[in-house]
């Protein structure tokens, strides 16, 4: 076995491709990203906390994370329903529906933002029916949730779909032949099997929503303390040439993103173990 393990591949190009990969990764991604941390390290805790944990910043984090959590939860429910319907049932136009699910990946965020605003404004196609009920969506935190639901849906559908597909009919048949009702089979056999994928999709949608900018700023209203998301606060600091302030908020967001990325990796490992 040691001979096999030591056998050198006859395929050429290891050094140059790995070298180029590391060089470009370093120049384009890693060095620029580390600039944020180095810059914030130079500003001192006091100055850092002044901006990063100001009342306005807290309100922005609360909105960004709260709306993202809500939007990801909505996508969890409807994403699972969509994936279920696409995998399990036949209906007219299924292929078109399946292709359409990826629209939020392909449609530029700014386009989504102005389209949703047009729909949900007081005189919009949807807004005009909500306004009489006293429900305001555009230019309120509710609008932020609407935009984040739009961009997050494909993450849940596309993560759950393959797992549902690979789920063998045999376990369901076994459950049914042992007398389980359809609900029991779903709750005790299917749901536990797709749970890791479902949570992964949820986390991916959440992570994307936390950093989202383009689709949100048009519909949000952007009132400080009320409907201002954290990425917008970074932009506002930059527009005032307050680079340190922008950096401080960016560090908080990056740390949160990296923690989420770590959680997603754990979830995916769990999901793979379940599948295997």
């Amino acid at each position: 076995m040691t001979i096999l393990a030591r056998r050198r591949s006859i395929i050429p190009g290891f050094g140059i491709t790995l070298g180029y990969t590391l060089l470009v990764l370093g120049l384009v991604v890693l060095i620029p990203l580390s600039a944020v941390f180095l810059k914030s390290a130079g500003m001192g805790w006091e100055a850092f906390a002044d901006v990063a944990f100001s009342r306005r910043a807290w309100a922005a984090y609360r909105l960004s994370f709260g709306a993202s959590l809500l939007a990801a939860s909505i996508n969890l429910v409807f994403g699972l329903t969509t994936a279920w319907v696409l995998v399990r049932y036949e209906f007219a136009g299924k292929r078109v529906v399946s292709a359409l699910v990826d629209l939020p990946f392909a449609l530029p965020t700014a386009v989504a933002g102005i389209a949703l605003t047009a729909l949900y404004a007081g005189n919009g196609l949807i807004g005009q029916y909500l306004e009489p009920w006293g429900v305001q969506v555009a230019f309120t935190p509710l609008g932020v949730v609407v935009a984040l639901v739009f961009i997050g849906l494909p993450f849940v559908v596309r993560t759950v779909e393959p797992v549902l597909q690979d789920l063998g009919a045999d376990v369901e048949e076994a459950a049914a032949s042992l007398g389980a009702s359809r609900w029991q089979t779903f709750g005790k056999v299917i749901f536990p099997a797709i749970l890791p994928a479902l949570l992964t999709g949820f986390a991916l949608a959440f992570a994307r929503a936390v950093g989202e900018y383009g689709s949100v700023i048009f519909i949000a209203g952007n009132m400080p303390l009320e409907s201002e998301i954290a990425p917008l606060l970074i932009v506002i600091q930059l527009e005032q040439y307050n680079y340190e302030g922008a950096t401080a908020i960016a560090v908080v967001m990056l740390v949160a993103s990296f923690a989420l990325l770590f959680a997603i990796n754990l979830l995916q490992a769990w999901s793979r173990r379940r599948m295997a």
Binding site: A35, V210, E212, P231, Y243, T247, S257, L261, N265
Partner: peptide
């Protein structure tokens, strides 16, 4: 780890993606 690092830009808010280049190459940048 390398695969995770290549995927890293997907986890970074687009606004921060812009910010990092301002910090490097902007008038007050490195």
């Amino acid at each position: 780890l390398l695969i995770t690092l290549i995927d890293l830009p997907f986890s970074v808010s687009p606004v921060i993606a812009g910010l990092i280049y301002v910090l490097l190459f902007g008038a007050h940048g490195w």
